[in-house]
Nucleic acid binder design. Structure first.
Lengths: 229, 229
DNA sequence: CCAAAAGTGTTACGCCTACACCCATGA
DNA sequence: TCATGGGTGTAGGCGTAACACTTTTGG
């Protein structure tokens, strides 16, 4: 049972990535159109198999870089999926990861190479295998995590307006948020740097750009502060 | 890369169980003394390998039943651990599960057969591999989960006193809780059945026994209520 | 009658929510 | 000058935390 390593069955181990991006108004995910069997031509998460010389985090990172070209991305392990017939071709367990990227950073060529496309979370197509469940679980985790840790900024460019930040949270939580309450809360936490610079694209008046002050956040966190939205 | 299933390396897939119990005053975990290599004689979580004809949940359940003899236990997948040299003998990925059992239900014979022992969470020995990290992560998850869902009852006998319930939460959260506030909160949720029966073991006066009303909880939950402690 | 645990309500504070008007600018 | 989005403050309600005394009964 426990005292015998080698007689057990071997099973394939895959990693699939739910890649989130935020495009002005909408939370999106990056999907690929499979050009190989099984389920060729269907939409799917980007995935790959774990290699013997890497751990799961590294595999997830490798897969993400392969599709987006972006390094040093926020990623977190989500869950492992193991239904026996989840992959009709082989017995495969998949460990799902989700990643938060600044959508502007992705590499167009790679996206094309993999026939990948950004979909609004609310309008994404049916996916192969159990990938729909993975996405659903990832969204729930994202909602929880973004309300407890300042990771939402990973989805925005380094400089962003308060309105962009608010829209981001509205799209993640799928609910309207009061403008003043939102800003009051954010300001009360005192973890942003307000720049003198303005973003003039969204209005005539222009709106001030802000940056997440990671150093300050870390200091405050060490002193017992916790992010909360 | 993605379009080739069979050339990837095969890797062993294990499941390890963090088994929680509550013994009057203390949160405990059930550990086994390994009577096989590697790390023979050291303390460890109960584990086993995934079989081809079962999914991860089933494997975790099988492993739990093997050690405790108890079926229909609350279990939840925790995380997958994949450090390359986590197991010095073989490249093994482990998916950790945690289980909540009524400590009175365990089977003494099986416990002896596996040289298993209950340890206070606060006094548990050093474990093999990365099992210490698994336990730490499981406790964090348990803290989170028990404060958001009524799963603490899984650690108690069907009939319990308010004081037992409070001590349970105190031991999970590792902090004192005000008696009146605790009872007020629990009563406000209105998900317990107060019995006429008293438990006479803990005091001369005796204290009323309660049961978790799962039906009522489910009804309330369907109407938007959520458990919160 | 004494020790030991059970049982029971109220007040104060802080946090969260709801809410409306003026400002700056380009067209 | 007007249309559009940006920016700002407060009052009330709700939930949470702090807090102490009486009851029961076996020894």
């Amino acid at each position: 049972m426990l005292n015998n390593y080698s007689t057990e069955d071997k099973i394939l181990l895959a990693v699939d990535c739910i890649i989130f991006g935020f495009d002005k108004e909408d939370l999106k995910i990056l999907l690929i159109k499979r050009d190989f069997e099984p389920e060729k031509g269907k939409w799917s998460l980007m995935g790959g198999f774990l290699r013997k010389q890497e751990n799961l985090d590294q595999a997830a990172d490798r897969i993400l870089v392969t599709l987006t070209g972006i390094h040093n991305v926020y990623m977190e392990q989500l869950h492992s999926y193991s239904k026996i017939d989840r992959d009709p071709a082989e017995r495969t367990i998949s460990v799902a990861y989700y990643a938060l990227i600044n959508i502007e950073d992705h590499n167009e060529e790679l996206i094309e190479q993999y026939s990948a496309k950004w979909f609004k979370v609310s309008e994404s197509p049916k996916l192969i295998f159990d990938h729909d469940i993975m996405v659903k679980n990832a969204i729930n985790r994202l909602r929880y995590k973004t309300s407890k840790e300042p990771i939402g900024f990973e989805l925005l460019p380094p400089k962003f307006t308060m309105r962009q930040l608010q829209k981001l949270y509205e799209s993640i939580l799928d609910e309207k948020i009061d403008k003043r309450n939102f800003i009051n809360k954010i300001n009360a936490m005192d973890i942003l740097i307000k720049l003198d610079e303005k973003d003039m694209n969204s209005s005539r008046k222009g709106s001030f750009l802000h940056m997440f002050d990671e150093q300050k956040y870390k200091r405050k966190k060490a002193e017992g502060f916790s992010f909360k939205l």
